[in-house]
């Protein structure tokens, strides 16, 4: 048993209080308010509210638009998170091998972290512009083949690419740190037994990297549900034709553009439950296989 660094719990609490206060003010209180509103019909200007029990939940759960945006959220979670982990993994493994440019790469690949989601959205909006962007030549060959402004699939692809770009730095840092912390005795022993770089990577590095991979995957799955907002708001605004209205954007649109505070709160509560369930499922299904001891 370790000795507590503080004489009493009171002092510990005192030091923690700013953080607790901030969390309470900016997280627990809004969450409580969202849960409360999900049981009321709330007037936007606060003129009055009517208790409606579970009517909001019944309405949302029977609304095809809710299920459509939930499905899109699920598709985005998988199609956006998996490359956002795989690409940094490949980059980290390459950087870890000490190739010629890996020192530069280690620096450069971290920079995008300094760019806010909304700015990324604006930049990728230009990059993918069908008239002046990098895919313009495609349109000259086959007119109309690339049109994120009118084609839902194209718009979805721009979101996935922007999200991938956004996810590289953090995941790269975590995975590279994990790789560099691996004792090189294993690799040397494997090399002595005649294992080439590929075999070493697959049979030694990857299994030993499991804790970091698991961490990055959990974060990426849950983050992709929430973080897509900045990208959607700047790049597609949920369009075209609702093709990129993920749940997180639908909540914003319903609440802030449609003044439907009750419906938005109800969907927030449902989204919160969903995120908790996904994180819990990942821990239950995957964590058992992750060995933290080396």
């Amino acid at each position: 048993m370790t000795q507590s660094p503080f004489r009493s719990r009171l002092i510990a609490l005192l030091f923690l209080s700013p953080l607790i206060l901030l969390t309470a003010l900016f997280f627990y209180w809004p969450v409580a308010e969202a849960i409360r509103w999900s049981f009321f019909l709330e007037q936007p200007f606060g003129g009055g509210s009517t208790f409606v029990g579970l009517a909001n939940f019944r309405r949302v759960l029977s609304d095809p638009e809710f299920w459509k945006s939930l499905k899109l959220t699920g598709i985005f979670m998988v199609t956006a998170s998996v490359p956002a982990v795989l690409v940094p993994l490949v980059l980290a493994m390459a950087a870890d091998r000490g190739l010629r440019t890996s020192r530069i790469a280690r620096n450069v690949l971290v920079w995008p972290k300094g760019v806010a989601g909304a700015s990324i959205g604006v930049i990728f909006g230009f990059i993918f512009n069908p008239f002046v962007g990098i895919l313009t030549p495609l349109n000259q060959l086959w007119p109309g083949i690339w049109s994120p402004g009118t084609d839902g699939v194209d718009a979805f692809i721009t979101l996935i690419v922007a999200n991938l770009w956004n996810g590289i730095p953090f995941n790269f840092v975590i995975l590279l740190a994990g790789l560099q912390a691996l004792p090189d005795t294993y690799s040397k022993a494997a090399a002595l037994d005649g294992a080439g770089p590929w075999r070493q990577a697959l049979d030694i590095r990857l299994p030993l990297l499991a804790p970091q991979l698991f961490f990055v995957l959990v974060l990426e799955f849950t983050e992709s549900i929430i973080n897509a907002f900045g990208l959607i708001d700047t790049m597609t605004r949920g369009g075209p034709g609702g093709a990129t209205t993920l749940l997180v954007y639908k909540i914003y649109a319903d609440g802030f553009k449609g003044y439907d505070l009750s419906g938005a709160s109800t969907q927030t509560v449902l989204l919160m439950i969903l995120v908790l369930l996904i994180a819990a499922a990942q821990f239950l299904l995957m964590e058992r296989r992750v060995k933290y001891e080396r």
């Binding site: 009118t150 369009g239 034709g241 209205t245 319903d254 553009k257 449609g258 003044y259 439907d260």
Partner: peptide
Amino acid sequence: FYVQFRDIFAEETQ
């Protein structure tokens, strides 16, 4: 909630 209807109309006709 007419502002929201304008969005719905835009989405569906798109």
